[in-house]
Amino acid sequence: MMYKYQLILLGDTKSNACKTIKVHFFDKIHSIGLKDDMFEVIYNETFHEKYSNKQPSFVFYFGCMNHSEKDTDILKVLLDNGDAIFPIYFGEIFEVEVPEIIHTMNGRQYIADHVGKYINYALEAMRLLRENRKLFISYRRTDSSAVANQLFDTFARNNYDVFLDTYSINPAKNFQEELHHRMTDCDVLIQLYTNDFKNSKWCNEEIVSANQKQIGVVEIVWPDCTPDIHNLLCKPIQLTQDMFVNKDFQNESCRFTEKCIEKVVYTVESVRARNLAARQDNLVGEFIKEAHKQGRRFMQEYRYLVETLKDGRIRLFIPAIGVPQSYDCFDSLRFRKLLNNEKLELFLIYDDLRIRKRWVEHLEWLNESLEVKTIKKKDFELWLKNN
């Protein structure tokens, strides 16, 4: 099965605003090197047939004065699954145009000049902006350095931040620790599985690490190799001689054909779509599960969880997939301005597994002075008990 990103359009889908946003959405997708067939466009009439809660989604709900409760049953399904819903209204009063079930959400009045911003909200939720599209290429120079560079160039053009392990880790660094740390921050790991690669001591370690972090693996298997696939999140591509320029695959300067490159790109996007949803669901699900054990309840918005306290304070918990950076803390401050609430408390929740110890210590040190605090997964239960 090939996984896709889901663009869901509900409410008044006959409106000019809906048509305009859809056109601009795909214009933006094309500009970052993605193709239409990586996306499933779902309307209310096709929702139950096409929708999957295992694939990343973004929902535009278009308000309407005379049909304010339209698609309520679908919205309930989406809310239960924690999907991103962005309500858009056209008149002066938000509540009279959209279903009551999403009245607590932060909608936007439609302004034609702001369509670009609306599209960026969707891309951000799907983590399709460049700073959120991270790819790790693992290979052996003796077998596949030219292919690795070819893939680096291709994915850089496709709006990815690409990491090549043997080029990007300083010789003075602890290789294994740095490898795990960098892998934690990527969406997909590409392994160029050649005869020399399978003898590398890092190969099994990378698979174990990727599996623990629910990172998708695309294993590109050379024609003369048959690997033992033992990662449930792994998608193998078995190569043939025809997939190489001049059918030459037995030296480090060999290169893929354009048709082969297209297959790799499509597979990587599919694996990314599948695992992006899985990683976020796992992180948010663990946090909510711990909260429910203690009788705490959260409202799930399209980019964060909300908790309203009895004294009027509001807490936002923002999932950070990968390695949290100090910039993520800074960037989260925009929610205070967005929601216009000075009593807002901001937290980044993250999975600290395989992140460098010194980096976790750095984040905990930042907690002492920054407005935005971080909470690591292993501390969810303790933090919720004490705060």
Rank of each mutant, 00 (worst) to 15 (best):
C18M: 10
N341M: 09
R127G: 05
V221P: 01
I375Q: 07
H292Q: 15
D83Q: 14
L232H: 10
F330N: 14
K4V: 05
A156H: 08
D281C: 06
I85R: 03
D248Y: 01
D224E: 15
K337T: 12
D12L: 05
L189I: 15
C203F: 12
I32L: 10
A291G: 15
E97N: 11
E262M: 02
I349K: 07
F62C: 08
S52K: 14
N174I: 01
M299D: 14
F287K: 12
N251H: 14
E131M: 09
L353S: 14
I220R: 00
R182C: 10
K213T: 11
S332G: 09
S15E: 08
C186A: 15
L9M: 14
K259C: 03
G285M: 11
T257G: 03
K117N: 12
S326P: 09
F330H: 15
E258R: 06
T240K: 13
R296W: 08
I8V: 15
V23L: 09
K70E: 11
K4E: 10
S332E: 10
K70D: 08
Q55H: 02
L179P: 00
V271D: 01
I321D: 06
D80F: 04
Q300L: 06
V323L: 01
K377Q: 15
Q250T: 06
N53E: 12
F62S: 06
F136P: 05
E371A: 13
G216K: 05
T226K: 15
C225R: 02
L151I: 02
M243V: 00
L309F: 09
C234P: 00
T72C: 07
P236W: 01
R356G: 13
Y61T: 03
D248W: 00
D311P: 02
E269C: 03
Y160F: 15
L305V: 13
N246I: 01
L353P: 00
I355R: 07
K117T: 10
V264W: 00
G63P: 01
D37Q: 11
V115H: 02
G33S: 06
F347R: 11
Y167E: 10
R296M: 15
V98R: 07
L123P: 03
R279Y: 08
C203T: 12
